[in-house]
Simulated scan of single mutants.
Amino acid sequence: MSRALYQILEWITRFAYINVLWVLFTLAGGILFGLFPATIAMFSLVRQWLRGNSDSPVLKSFWQYYKSEFFKSNFLGLFIYGISFIFIFNIFFLYANMGELLTWTTAPLLAGMLLFIMLLFYLFPTYVHFDLSIAQTFKNALLMMFVSPVHTVFIFVSLLAFYFIVYVIPALGFVFGASFYCFITVWFSLDVFKRIAEKKTR
Protein backbone atom coordinates (compact mmCIF):
# COMPACT_ATOMS: atom_id res chain seq x y z
CA MET A 1 0.00 0.00 0.00
CA SER A 2 2.79 2.42 0.93
CA ARG A 3 4.57 1.54 -2.33
CA ALA A 4 1.47 2.37 -4.39
CA LEU A 5 0.95 5.62 -2.47
CA TYR A 6 4.58 6.57 -3.05
CA GLN A 7 4.21 6.00 -6.82
CA ILE A 8 1.01 8.06 -6.94
CA LEU A 9 2.67 10.94 -5.10
CA GLU A 10 5.71 10.66 -7.36
CA TRP A 11 3.57 10.98 -10.48
CA ILE A 12 1.63 13.89 -8.98
CA THR A 13 4.92 15.63 -8.24
CA ARG A 14 6.21 14.94 -11.74
CA PHE A 15 3.16 16.45 -13.42
CA ALA A 16 3.17 19.48 -11.14
CA TYR A 17 6.88 19.97 -11.86
CA ILE A 18 6.55 19.67 -15.62
CA ASN A 19 3.62 22.10 -15.53
CA VAL A 20 5.86 24.64 -13.77
CA LEU A 21 8.60 24.06 -16.35
CA TRP A 22 6.09 24.57 -19.16
CA VAL A 23 5.07 27.94 -17.72
CA LEU A 24 8.66 29.08 -17.06
CA PHE A 25 10.00 28.07 -20.47
CA THR A 26 6.99 29.61 -22.21
CA LEU A 27 7.75 32.88 -20.44
CA ALA A 28 11.46 32.50 -21.22
CA GLY A 29 10.62 32.49 -24.92
CA GLY A 30 8.55 35.64 -24.62
CA ILE A 31 5.31 33.61 -24.57
CA LEU A 32 4.80 33.94 -28.32
CA PHE A 33 7.98 32.06 -29.25
CA GLY A 34 8.25 30.02 -26.07
CA LEU A 35 4.80 28.44 -26.05
CA PHE A 36 5.31 25.79 -28.70
CA PRO A 37 8.87 24.68 -27.82
CA ALA A 38 7.77 24.35 -24.19
CA THR A 39 4.64 22.45 -25.23
CA ILE A 40 6.59 20.06 -27.44
CA ALA A 41 9.13 19.49 -24.64
CA MET A 42 6.31 18.68 -22.22
CA PHE A 43 4.60 16.30 -24.66
CA SER A 44 7.91 14.58 -25.44
CA LEU A 45 8.62 13.94 -21.76
CA VAL A 46 5.11 12.71 -20.98
CA ARG A 47 5.31 10.38 -23.98
CA GLN A 48 8.58 8.97 -22.59
CA TRP A 49 7.01 8.43 -19.17
CA LEU A 50 3.97 6.66 -20.58
CA ARG A 51 6.24 4.40 -22.62
CA GLY A 52 8.09 3.34 -19.47
CA ASN A 53 11.13 5.62 -19.63
CA SER A 54 10.83 7.73 -16.49
CA ASP A 55 14.43 7.69 -15.30
CA SER A 56 15.87 10.60 -17.29
CA PRO A 57 16.36 13.92 -15.43
CA VAL A 58 13.27 16.05 -15.99
CA LEU A 59 14.85 19.49 -16.24
CA LYS A 60 17.75 18.36 -18.43
CA SER A 61 15.45 16.43 -20.79
CA PHE A 62 12.98 19.29 -20.96
CA TRP A 63 15.75 21.75 -21.86
CA GLN A 64 17.15 19.43 -24.53
CA TYR A 65 13.76 19.03 -26.21
CA TYR A 66 13.12 22.76 -25.90
CA LYS A 67 16.38 23.62 -27.67
CA SER A 68 16.27 20.95 -30.36
CA GLU A 69 12.64 21.62 -31.32
CA PHE A 70 12.65 25.41 -30.93
CA PHE A 71 12.55 26.38 -34.60
CA LYS A 72 10.50 23.50 -35.97
CA SER A 73 7.90 23.78 -33.20
CA ASN A 74 7.58 27.52 -33.77
CA PHE A 75 7.08 26.84 -37.47
CA LEU A 76 4.21 24.56 -36.44
CA GLY A 77 3.03 27.34 -34.16
CA LEU A 78 2.83 29.78 -37.06
CA PHE A 79 0.22 27.57 -38.72
CA ILE A 80 -1.75 27.18 -35.49
CA TYR A 81 -1.60 30.92 -34.78
CA GLY A 82 -2.70 31.64 -38.35
CA ILE A 83 -5.66 29.25 -38.29
CA SER A 84 -6.70 30.49 -34.84
CA PHE A 85 -6.51 34.10 -36.02
CA ILE A 86 -8.77 33.33 -38.97
CA PHE A 87 -11.41 31.80 -36.70
CA ILE A 88 -11.22 34.63 -34.15
CA PHE A 89 -11.30 37.33 -36.83
CA ASN A 90 -14.36 35.81 -38.48
CA ILE A 91 -16.23 35.49 -35.18
CA PHE A 92 -15.60 39.13 -34.27
CA PHE A 93 -16.44 40.25 -37.81
CA LEU A 94 -19.75 38.39 -37.81
CA TYR A 95 -20.58 39.56 -34.31
CA ALA A 96 -19.90 43.18 -35.24
CA ASN A 97 -22.04 42.99 -38.37
CA MET A 98 -24.85 40.62 -37.37
CA GLY A 99 -25.20 40.91 -33.62
CA GLU A 100 -27.87 38.56 -32.30
CA LEU A 101 -27.90 36.52 -35.51
CA LEU A 102 -24.40 35.32 -34.64
CA THR A 103 -25.46 31.94 -33.25
CA TRP A 104 -27.43 31.05 -36.39
CA THR A 105 -25.09 32.34 -39.06
CA THR A 106 -21.86 30.95 -37.65
CA ALA A 107 -22.80 27.26 -37.52
CA PRO A 108 -20.26 26.27 -40.22
CA LEU A 109 -17.60 28.42 -38.55
CA LEU A 110 -18.27 26.88 -35.14
CA ALA A 111 -18.20 23.40 -36.68
CA GLY A 112 -14.84 24.23 -38.22
CA MET A 113 -13.56 25.43 -34.85
CA LEU A 114 -14.70 22.21 -33.24
CA LEU A 115 -12.86 20.15 -35.85
CA PHE A 116 -9.77 22.28 -35.33
CA ILE A 117 -9.87 21.71 -31.56
CA MET A 118 -10.21 17.95 -32.10
CA LEU A 119 -7.28 18.11 -34.52
CA LEU A 120 -5.17 19.72 -31.78
CA PHE A 121 -5.89 16.71 -29.55
CA TYR A 122 -3.77 14.59 -31.88
CA LEU A 123 -1.43 17.19 -33.39
CA PHE A 124 1.13 17.42 -30.58
CA PRO A 125 1.16 13.67 -29.81
CA THR A 126 1.68 13.01 -33.53
CA TYR A 127 4.48 15.57 -33.67
CA VAL A 128 6.45 13.97 -30.81
CA HIS A 129 5.71 10.36 -31.78
CA PHE A 130 6.68 10.48 -35.45
CA ASP A 131 9.53 12.17 -37.29
CA LEU A 132 7.46 13.99 -39.91
CA SER A 133 7.36 17.28 -41.73
CA ILE A 134 4.85 19.89 -40.55
CA ALA A 135 2.50 19.13 -43.44
CA GLN A 136 2.67 15.38 -42.77
CA THR A 137 2.09 16.01 -39.05
CA PHE A 138 -1.16 17.85 -39.81
CA LYS A 139 -2.18 15.16 -42.29
CA ASN A 140 -1.54 12.29 -39.87
CA ALA A 141 -3.20 14.08 -36.95
CA LEU A 142 -6.26 14.63 -39.13
CA LEU A 143 -6.27 10.96 -40.06
CA MET A 144 -6.02 9.93 -36.38
CA MET A 145 -8.94 12.19 -35.55
CA PHE A 146 -11.22 10.60 -38.15
CA VAL A 147 -10.26 6.96 -37.53
CA SER A 148 -10.61 7.18 -33.73
CA PRO A 149 -13.90 8.93 -32.86
CA VAL A 150 -14.29 6.89 -29.66
CA HIS A 151 -10.91 8.06 -28.36
CA THR A 152 -11.82 11.64 -29.26
CA VAL A 153 -15.02 11.35 -27.21
CA PHE A 154 -13.04 9.96 -24.25
CA ILE A 155 -10.60 12.87 -24.50
CA PHE A 156 -13.51 15.32 -24.50
CA VAL A 157 -15.14 13.63 -21.51
CA SER A 158 -11.88 13.49 -19.55
CA LEU A 159 -11.06 17.14 -20.18
CA LEU A 160 -14.62 18.17 -19.41
CA ALA A 161 -14.48 16.27 -16.11
CA PHE A 162 -11.20 18.01 -15.29
CA TYR A 163 -12.79 21.36 -16.15
CA PHE A 164 -15.55 20.80 -13.59
CA ILE A 165 -12.99 19.79 -10.97
CA VAL A 166 -10.98 22.94 -11.69
CA TYR A 167 -14.19 24.98 -11.49
CA VAL A 168 -14.62 23.71 -7.93
CA ILE A 169 -10.90 23.84 -7.04
CA PRO A 170 -9.31 26.53 -9.29
CA ALA A 171 -5.83 25.99 -7.86
CA LEU A 172 -5.66 22.61 -9.62
CA GLY A 173 -5.83 24.40 -12.95
CA PHE A 174 -2.68 26.37 -12.17
CA VAL A 175 -0.82 23.34 -10.87
CA PHE A 176 -1.88 20.66 -13.36
CA GLY A 177 -3.74 22.40 -16.22
CA ALA A 178 -1.28 21.98 -19.08
CA SER A 179 0.27 18.72 -17.86
CA PHE A 180 -3.12 17.06 -17.37
CA TYR A 181 -4.23 18.05 -20.88
CA CYS A 182 -0.92 16.68 -22.17
CA PHE A 183 -1.28 13.41 -20.25
CA ILE A 184 -4.84 12.77 -21.45
CA THR A 185 -4.17 13.46 -25.13
CA VAL A 186 -0.88 11.53 -25.20
CA TRP A 187 -2.34 8.56 -23.33
CA PHE A 188 -5.25 8.13 -25.71
CA SER A 189 -3.16 8.96 -28.78
CA LEU A 190 -0.59 6.29 -27.96
CA ASP A 191 -3.41 3.75 -27.88
CA VAL A 192 -4.57 4.97 -31.30
CA PHE A 193 -1.04 4.71 -32.68
CA LYS A 194 -0.71 1.20 -31.28
CA ARG A 195 -3.99 0.03 -32.78
CA ILE A 196 -3.16 1.44 -36.20
CA ALA A 197 0.30 -0.18 -36.12
CA GLU A 198 -1.25 -3.55 -35.21
CA LYS A 199 -3.69 -3.29 -38.11
CA LYS A 200 -0.82 -2.57 -40.49
CA THR A 201 1.14 -5.62 -39.29
CA ARG A 202 -1.86 -7.84 -39.96
Rank of each mutant, 00 (worst) to 15 (best):
D55F: 10
A4Y: 14
A171S: 13
L115A: 05
S56L: 15
D55Q: 10
F130L: 02
A171F: 15
A16W: 12
V46A: 05
L101S: 13
L35E: 09
F93N: 06
A197I: 12
D191C: 03
R3K: 15
I155V: 02
T103D: 13
V168P: 12
Y65K: 06
V153D: 02
A41G: 03
A135Y: 12
M42F: 08
L119Q: 02
Q7T: 14
G29M: 08
G29R: 00
A141S: 03
G77T: 00
K200H: 14
R195Q: 14
M144D: 02
L119W: 04
I86S: 03
F87R: 02
L143C: 06
I86T: 03
V186A: 01
M98P: 05
F124W: 02
E198S: 14
F92S: 08
L27Q: 11
N140S: 09
T126P: 05
A4P: 08
A141F: 05
Y66D: 00
H151F: 12
L76V: 01
N140I: 12
M118K: 08
A96P: 07
F183E: 04
L9G: 14
G112P: 06
N90S: 10
F25N: 05
S158W: 01
F79Y: 12
F183D: 01
I12D: 10
T137Q: 02
F87E: 05
R202E: 14
N90M: 12
I80L: 09
I184W: 01
W22Y: 11
W187I: 03
M145T: 11
T105P: 09
D191V: 13
G177Q: 11
L27M: 13
L159R: 06
F193P: 01
S133R: 10
L32N: 05
K60E: 07
A197T: 13
Y17A: 07
F174L: 14
F138R: 02
V168N: 14
I40K: 00
F156L: 13
K60D: 08
E198L: 15
I88W: 15
